[in-house]
Amino acid sequence: MFRIRFHGRGGQGMKTASRILGTAFFLEGYEVQDAPRYGAERRGAPIFAFVRADRRPIQERGIIRQADLVVVADDSLVPVPAADVLAGCDANTVLLINSFQSAEVWRQRLNLQGPILTLPAMEDVEDRAELPYVGAACAGAAAGLSGVIGQTSLEQAIAEELGHLGAAVIAANLERASNAFQSLSEQAGLVKPGRTFSAEGWQTPDWIELPFEQADVSAPAIHAGLTSEAIKTGAWRTMRPLVDYARCNRCWWVCSTFCPDGAIRVDEERYPQIDYDHCKGCLICVAQCPPHAISAVAEHLAAEGVES
């Protein structure tokens, strides 16, 4: 059985990637299961989707703990604990990262035993409208690495899954998926199915007798204010809004009012100050600012101090 996980951010098309790959396997005659997994849905939040494909009916369900292939559409997810990108990665897991860093850098950073590849088809994504195409590239790459999906099935899967979006969208996704598929042609078959679960011997679960605890501990209460500040949701951001204070009207309310996360504070001089620890990069402020004083910069460029 092939077990493949896609990790990305809400809006990057990971669910779509899993569906394209699932349909491509199905067209090749495989039994298939594909599914997304997310919490309270939000653009930018870590999500994952997974695909199982086998020649026999599939009885396994739910999350894939140990995958044959892990595809990461956004390398900023690797250090995010909630994304759990590296869960179950071992010597038999191929890791494919869409990254501006080289595979060698990731090998040194992660110290993983399995092969690491970077997704070469993705050029610098500066335009948010480009982000969903990452999904098509990821699906094309995964199809290529499986070695069992032909380009015809991949193309038909894209047409089926994106048919409702019109010919132009299909064509743009086809191009990116095909590029990724072909660029990995030398690695076709690197991802191998076949991890099996055996009841001949298994690791005993680390079960505990859950102790009784007084309700002052065990009630689901939050005993301190502002605990959500401790969660740096700014790590979800792929694009960073930057205020050009020379153009700011100091209207004092438009950007801060529209900000759905309360991440813009107006200081005593009536200038907006963005809390980057909690700005998720939705860019509503960019759209709303009357004098167009807020621009958007790709997060990795902004982090390096490059302003567009």
């Binding site: 699932g22 199905f26 039994e31 298939v32 594909d34 599914a35 369900r61």
Partner: peptide, 10 residues
């Protein structure tokens, strides 16, 4: 939910 509702299979 999820295990069937959002899971595609043949």
């Amino acid at each position: 939910g999820f295990y069937l509702s959002f899971t595609r299979e043949p």
